[in-house]
Nucleic acid binder design. Structure first.
Lengths: 236, 236
DNA sequence: AGGCCCCGATATGGATGCAGTTTATGGCCG
DNA sequence: CGGCCATAAACTGCATCCATATCGGGGCCT
């Protein structure tokens, strides 16, 4: 297994994240290792069952074992990695299907969150989303895609927050953290982005109308449509 | 904040866990700290916003800072604790509603898992559950409750596994890990246990019949009924 | 040839040390 | 008496170190 380019990729991914994150909190070494490993696992470069030796990873990344071990603890809490006392961490079986299964779970969580959010979202949150929607309106501009993605991200995350269920919000946020990994590399065709944008607008309108049932349905439709457009989405 | 009795409680909780866990893998110090902190947080002894200083916790528990920091990383991955670079970890707001919100999420996840499981559960898994169900049948025996809880636990977890969606299974498993914390202290009244048992049987029968819709409905009914019986369940 | 055991290489868990940052304290000034 | 800043104390992130457990390969016996 080669780690060539691991570090540079890492910082790439990270800079992307920092640009989009609202709270540009500095990243600790633990975060870097965590995201780097996650990316490699989700990409399938670390197949299920592969041992993740803290010693070796630390050597490859040029950091001490301490942050690596901590990152492994986080991956273990995510259920991506299996830790056993005195044994090496291993990538859990099924890791390659991760993104597909995440999507399936989102279909359970997010429609419900949207319904809850329709009744609880604040005026300020709505206004912010509408501003983002306006900014992300399809145009001939070349860098329209990133704006659409910002809107996408903000919409889903705001809904999660506005659901009022903190655990639910956290779960959705985590799903998005994973999904995000695939975004970096994904080059969606134009019509997919456009369709997504329309669906997002429908969700936003339902929220504005404070209509839980419509919000739920619009969210479900959006997720199903996304699943259909990228049916074999394993990584990208 | 006093930590009196923290360690002893810790080992108590843990011994309970080990008895019920199938894989009696030894617990590392990280696990102990993690479970201990989680218990205190869920019980409300660590209110939202309280700083969790690794140095201090390590001192109180008589361990070094290393396992404490790792436990905090896991709690952060769970979303229970918020970590910021160079700042002390803090208990996230809403931590006291954790168990209620977990339950709400289970109502989203487990019915779906049950439906999936109805079509995928193996004969062996069914047989094992039926054996547990028989063992846990209500009787005059004093220690019937633990058997019922074993059955409860096994049923839900087996369904999660049999759903075939690994992420979903992991999420459910984690919910149960949290719920379990409340079990230790909970003394359910007899009729609640009995009702639960009947509901569990209904779910099992639907699985046996390979009937996804019935399984989903039975699971949802079970969860709603549990929520109704302990509406103000915050800790117990 | 194939299984078994033993031992060196290598890994892990945890403690400790240190540099840098944050937080609390206390004196000073308005 | 209350706000403000300097300074001391406390805390964090990370590296390093040590004891112990696991892994892996070669020799030995069957």
């Amino acid at each position: 297994m080669d780690f060539i380019g691991f570090k540079s990729e890492l910082t790439l991914v990270f800079s992307v994240m920092l640009v989009n994150e609202k709270s540009a909190a500095e990243a600790s070494r633990v975060d870097e290792v965590y995201h780097g490993l996650l990316l490699r696992i989700v990409r399938g470069e670390m197949p299920a069952g592969m041992p993740l030796k803290s010693t070796q990873i630390a050597r490859e990344l040029g950091v001490s074992r301490t942050p690596v071990v901590q990152a492994l603890q986080r991956l273990a809490a995510d259920g991506i990695v299996h830790l056993e006392l005195n044994k090496r961490a291993v990538v859990r079986p099924g890791a390659e299907k991760w993104l597909v299964e995440i999507h399936e779970m989102r279909e359970l969580l997010e429609p419900h969150a949207a319904a809850l959010a329709a009744e609880r979202i604040s005026e300020g949150q709505l206004a912010r989303l509408e501003a983002l929607a306006a900014a992300a309106a399809p145009s001939e501009s070349l860098d329209w895609a990133p704006l659409a993605q910002d809107f996408d991200f903000a919409l889903h995350l705001t809904i999660a927050d506005a659901s009022g269920n903190f655990v639910l919000a956290e779960a959705i946020r985590k799903c998005w953290g994973f999904k995000r990994l695939s975004y970096a590399a994904a080059d969606e065709p134009h019509e997919v982005l456009d369709k997504g944008y329309q669906e997002h607008l429908a969700i936003l309108q339902a929220l504005r109308a404070r209509d839980p049932l419509t919000a739920r349905a619009a969210m479900l439709l959006h997720l199903r449509s996304a699943a259909r457009l990228r049916p074999a989405e394993t990584i990208v």
